[in-house]
Design a binder for these strands. Structure first.
Lengths: 150, 150
DNA sequence: CCGCATCCGGTAAGATACTG
DNA sequence: CAGTATCTTACCGGATGCGG
């Protein structure tokens, strides 16, 4: 199935499913560094999709999260290059957060999570209990974000 | 508990980006219950993609994880309906884990994580430093899993 | 008010040894 | 081989406080 020699394979390729080749280093593990932590994807969702751009709005949007954890996650996501401060003022002190291009490109991950959820939690999510496809949930801009990866 | 039509919004829809409608309950948050925990997606990747189906192989595949945490995650993923034991013997004791249909449907989430990673970590992942598209990384079966959600 | 920092109790994760 | 038992450590959740 795989003839690509440029990728080191530590294992037998016959044991692979779905994957055409092996990575030198697993992109899933790498990506999950900042994004895999608790609340991180929800914060990204809030900033990117729900447009909750301010600290206290993010707090209210996620019942259970504490200011301490939120501040930590925001810094981690900023360090990972997924979000950035779009505005910073004082009196009144206002900090607005926005997605970077890299953060925007992470949206398809959230979309797939939503697609999966909409298949298996449809009775909770929709009154008619009918699972939705991605194009029913997200607009054209979002679908284009997905298509760039296909 | 909450009677919400699918288009009813607790917020201003003008504040939405990408999303066509609001959910009664956020599918991202719901889905991230079992899948969002530390190591969970990596375990799913190992079982579903790398075909590491046994306890000790999963242990070795994830440097840093302890048997205690692995056992916990396996039970959580099993309870969430994403994995199941495909075989269970004694003398010698052998347990093999496999994805359920629900677990297979979660693969596109991992694929999108990989796609994102392959765009932003290409220099680490590929010797020619060229980002790959999903169809270059995953085979037809995997692409079909994605397409069912589009 | 808003964006954090501090302190503290609880829970989840890490290290190691051990058992059916 | 596939997990437990036990102990330690790191992180999270909740309340409160403080500077701007």
């Amino acid at each position: 199935v795989v003839e690509v020699t440029e990728f080191q394979s530590t294992h037998n390729d016959s044991e692979l499913a779905y994957l055409k080749l092996r990575f030198a280093e697993c992109p899933i593990k790498t990506t999950l560094g900042a994004l895999g932590k608790k609340w991180a994807m929800l914060i990204l969702r809030d900033i990117g999709i729900y447009k909750k751009e301010r600290f206290n709005r993010l707090l209210k949007s996620n019942p259970g999260i504490t200011p301490r954890v939120l501040a930590t996650r925001l810094k981690e996501l900023e360090t990972a290059g997924l979000i950035q401060t779009v505005e910073k003022r004082r009196s009144p002190m206002v900090v607005r957060w926005g997605l970077t291009q890299k953060g925007i490109d992470a949206i398809p991950i959230l979309m797939m999570v939503a697609a999966f959820g909409s298949k298996y939690e449809a009775e909770k999510l929709f009154v008619d209990k009918r699972p939705r496809k991605l194009h029913e949930l997200f607009n054209r801009d979002a679908m284009d974000l997905v298509r760039q990866f296909l």
